[in-house]
């Protein structure tokens, strides 16, 4: 038997101050009671009325007359309200939501009617906010209730967040795909534009000598990308010390001197000390320098190559 959302929906949060309460114990007790109610036997009715069922209408009316209060008892003693809701009478019992809603509306309408009556009598009916007295449910119990409500709220929020994140992820994927497509399109478009431009230029036969002037590049002197031609013998390119780092070594004997010199040149060429990165790079000069190749190597390999 599920409790419909009205119960929680109309919960007045003003009744209790907000603070975080987490009670795990109450969850357990609640689930237990839930299972209990589920286990309860469902109602079975006889399909048709028993024929010999007793119904002593007169006796009932007699008893009613005997037991009931005198007719002129003022309403304030009874406090009872009959709520007639006309066409809405038939409610499906097994539809929990509709049934509870009908009870709720009945109670609400009855309350309104009763309040108007009480109001016209000039009687107080609502508890003032500064009237404190014992309540049917204890404060500790209400804490539990609130804890549960908060937990439920949190759970719902978390679920919402998860859902949102999932959707965002999906959306992000789409956006990414769109972007990539756009980029590809742009690239393609640019290439096309360049091609077109080239074609146009070819068609026009490079006639636009004057157009050449528009180009920002200036290659006239041809020296822009050249290195300074200063040759530094025995100094590796990129060696900022200018080869001095190794010239400062101690001079040994004469026999060793020659070796040392060779070592120095080799060091300066292949690198020993100094900055490594630059001297291993080819420059225009080293590329042109073919001294290091042996002619015979290439000729010897002719056969193999073919």
């Amino acid at each position: 038997m599920a409790i419909n959302p009205i119960d929680t929906g109309v919960f007045d949060e003003d009744d209790m101050p907000e603070d975080e309460v987490n009670d795990l114990g109450d969850e357990a007790s609640d689930s237990e009671s839930q299972s209990e109610s589920d286990a309860e036997g469902e109602d079975v009715k006889l399909p048709e009325a028993k024929a010999n069922a007793i119904y002593d209408r007169d006796g009932i009316m007699d008893k009613l007359g005997d037991m009931s209060w005198p007719q002129d008892v003022p309403w304030i003693h009874r406090l009872s309200v009959d709520v007639d809701r006309g066409q809405e009478q038939e409610v499906d019992v097994n539809d929990d939501l509709a049934r509870e809603l009908s009870f709720y509306t009945q109670a609400l309408e009855g309350t309104r009617e009763a309040y108007e009556k009480l109001h016209s009598m000039g009687l107080p009916f609502l508890r003032p906010s500064d009237y404190y007295a014992e309540m049917v449910k204890t404060d500790s119990h209400m804490e539990k209730v609130k804890g549960r409500l908060l937990a439920e709220k949190r759970k719902m929020e978390e679920a919402d967040e998860r859902k949102k994140a999932r959707e965002a992820k999906k959306l992000a994927k789409e956006v990414q795909a769109q972007k990539q497509k756009e980029r590809a399109k742009q690239k393609k478009g640019e290439i096309e534009a360049v091609k077109k431009w080239r074609k146009q230029r070819q068609q026009s036969g490079f006639s636009g000598g004057d157009k050449d002037g528009d180009l920002p590049f200036d290659f006239e002197d041809g020296k822009t990308f050249e290195r300074t031609g200063k040759k530094r013998p025995g100094v590796a390119p990129g060696d900022r010390s200018g080869g001095k780092s190794r010239q400062g070594g101690v001079k040994g004997r004469k026999g060793m001197d020659k070796k040392m010199k060779k070592r120095e040149t080799r060091d300066s060429k292949f690198g020993f000390g100094g900055k490594k990165g630059m001297k291993k790079q080819n420059t225009a000069k080293t590329t042109d320098d073919l001294r290091g190749f042996k002619q015979s190597d290439t000729s010897g390999n002719k056969k193999r190559k073919r």
Binding site: D26, D30, A133, E134, M135, K144
Partner: peptide, 10 residues
């Protein structure tokens, strides 16, 4: 039952 959230004067 914790689903019944109301309270009133005893």
């Amino acid at each position: 039952e914790l689903k019944l959230t109301g309270n009133h004067l005893k």
